[in-house]
């Protein structure tokens, strides 16, 4: 439960190896969180990582199997009690060229990037509503704010996810539970290795810092960096003929 000064006690990270996810968890632990659950594929095969002084639990979690998501969330609550922050941080980027060549791979990526978040998000929301408190942090992307031809498979999944998260946040209004939508630009990290960074890019640490501030003030939407909010207000207005010529 969030205390008077905004520190939380427990965190569940779905996609427990995510760079951004772990960066958020580390900061929450630094600010006082004491119990962490990392859920990832074959997570229990290895030893738990050391995250500050927190007690770290591991759970096996497969984002592509929505029928198992509910059990994972209940198992996490059994381990650490009320879930104060739930972060589904799983996802794949993939290149548009690969998806063009392999439509089945594209559908599978979308199933994880969108469908997986829908089931995980709804199961998490059920638990948070029961508790009467807690925040679901949804990692959206500016790629979904206006989908670009350069990565429209990934972008369309993020667009769906962004809309889902806003709707879920509205559905939870008044229950004490919340949804925070995070919209980073290009994030320089393992997921984007080998790609040249776009303008207004950020690091996983910077995304995590923005999430921490957002959690403290109960923000509904967080842009990283913040000036992307203004930038995209303009980009959304661009005529289609111009937008389609965006180099990336």
């Amino acid at each position: 439960m969030k205390n008077a000064l905004g520190a939380v006690d427990t965190v569940l990270l779905l996609g427990g190896r995510s760079e951004i996810g772990l960066a958020i968890v580390e900061r929450l632990v630094r600010d006082g969180a004491r119990r962490v659950v990392l859920a990832a594929r074959d997570a229990t095969a290895g030893p738990p990582p050391v995250i500050g002084a927190a007690e770290v639990h591991l759970l096996d979690f497969d984002a592509s199997r929505p029928e198992t998501h509910g059990e994972v969330i209940e198992a996490a609550a059994k381990l650490v009690g009320d879930l104060d922050v739930v972060i589904p941080a799983f996802g794949v980027l993939g290149s548009q060229r690969t998806y063009d060549a392999d439509p089945v791979a594209a559908a599978e990526a979308v199933a994880v990037n969108y469908g997986g978040h829908v089931s995980a998000g709804l199961f998490a929301a059920r638990r948070l509503r029961e508790q009467g408190h807690g925040t679901l942090v949804v990692l959206s992307s500016v790629a979904g704010v206006r989908v670009r031809r350069a990565n429209f498979v990934y972008g369309s999944a993020k667009a769906g996810l962004d809309g889902f998260a806003q709707g879920l946040g509205d559905a939870l209004h008044g229950s004490g539970a919340r949804v925070m939508v995070v919209r980073p630009g290009f994030v320089i990290g393992r997921m984007t290795e080998g790609m040249s960074p776009a303008p207004m890019s950020s690091t996983p640490g910077q995304v995590a810092d923005a999430v921490i501030v957002g959690l403290r003030v109960d923000a509904e939407v967080v842009w990283v960096p913040g000036r992307l909010r203004v930038f995209f207000a303009v980009m959304r207005m661009l005529p289609r003929a111009v937008w389609r010529r965006m180099p990336r």
Binding site: M1, K2, N3, L5, G132, H133, G174, S175, G176
Partner: peptide, 16 residues
């Protein structure tokens, strides 16, 4: 459900 806080008016939570 009613949102309650203590005298410091921090960290409201809902309850019946």
């Amino acid at each position: 459900m009613t949102f309650l806080t203590g005298w410091g008016r921090t960290a409201p939570t809902p309850a019946r």
